[in-house]
Amino acid sequence: MNYSRRIFVSMFWVALGVILIICNIAGFIDEFWSGMGGGLIGGGIFRLIKQIKYRTNEEYREMIDVESSDERNKYIANKAWAWAGYLFVMIAALISVVFKIAGYDDLVPVTSGSVCLILVLYWGAYMYLRKKY
C-alpha cells in the first residue's frame, strides 16, 4: 500500500471515530460505540503521526524498512504470536474451569468456545501449511 493511501486510511479512521462519538452524543447509538470511536481516533492519530514521520524523517524510514525486512525480527514476531496463542489457550481453559466452579455458568461457553475456536483455527492452519510446505 502506498504511503499516501496509508495516510488517507488513517484519516478515515479518525473521521469514523468522530462520527461515532457525534452519533452517541446525539443519542443514536450507545456508549460502547463512542468508546470505539475514541479508540479509532487515538489509533488513527497514532498511525497518522507514524506515517508523517516515515515520510519526513530519513533515519526513521531506514529503521522501519530494516525492521520490516529483517529475518530475525520476523522470527521473533512469529515466536511472540505462538507464545501468545499458547498462553491464551491455557489461560482461557483455566478460566473456564474457574467460572464453572464459581457458578458463572453463563460465562463458561464464552471462554470454552474461544478455546475451541482457536484450536480449530490452529488445526486448520497447520493442515494448510503442512500441505503448502
Results as ranks from 00 to 15, higher is better:
C23E: 04
S34A: 14
E67W: 06
V97P: 06
E67T: 11
G124S: 12
R5N: 10
L117F: 15
D105H: 06
A26G: 08
W123H: 08
E58M: 12
T111F: 09
A125R: 10
S114Q: 11
L119T: 03
V98C: 11
R130S: 10
N2A: 12
F88N: 10
I45D: 08
L20S: 03
Y104N: 13
S68I: 12
V66G: 02
V97C: 12
D106C: 02
I91R: 06
F28R: 02
I22V: 12
K100P: 00
C116V: 05
V115G: 05
F28E: 07
F88I: 12
R130C: 00
G43D: 03
A92M: 10
A82I: 04
K74T: 07
M11R: 07
I49S: 09
E31K: 15
E62M: 13
S112F: 04
F12L: 08
M36E: 01
A92K: 01
V14N: 00
E31L: 14
F32C: 04
F8L: 14
F12H: 10
V97W: 08
I49F: 15
Q51I: 01
G103H: 05
I118M: 15
P109T: 04
A82Y: 03
F32S: 06
Y122F: 15
N73Q: 13
G42I: 12
R130Y: 11
Y122P: 00
C23D: 09
W83F: 15
K132C: 04
G17Q: 05
G35V: 01
D70P: 03
I21D: 00
E71A: 13
W13L: 07
D106P: 01
F32Y: 13
F46L: 11
F12Y: 11
V18D: 09
S68A: 11
L40V: 00
S68M: 14
M1S: 01
G27W: 04
I64K: 10
Q51A: 04
I49P: 07
I118R: 12
E67P: 01
S69E: 09
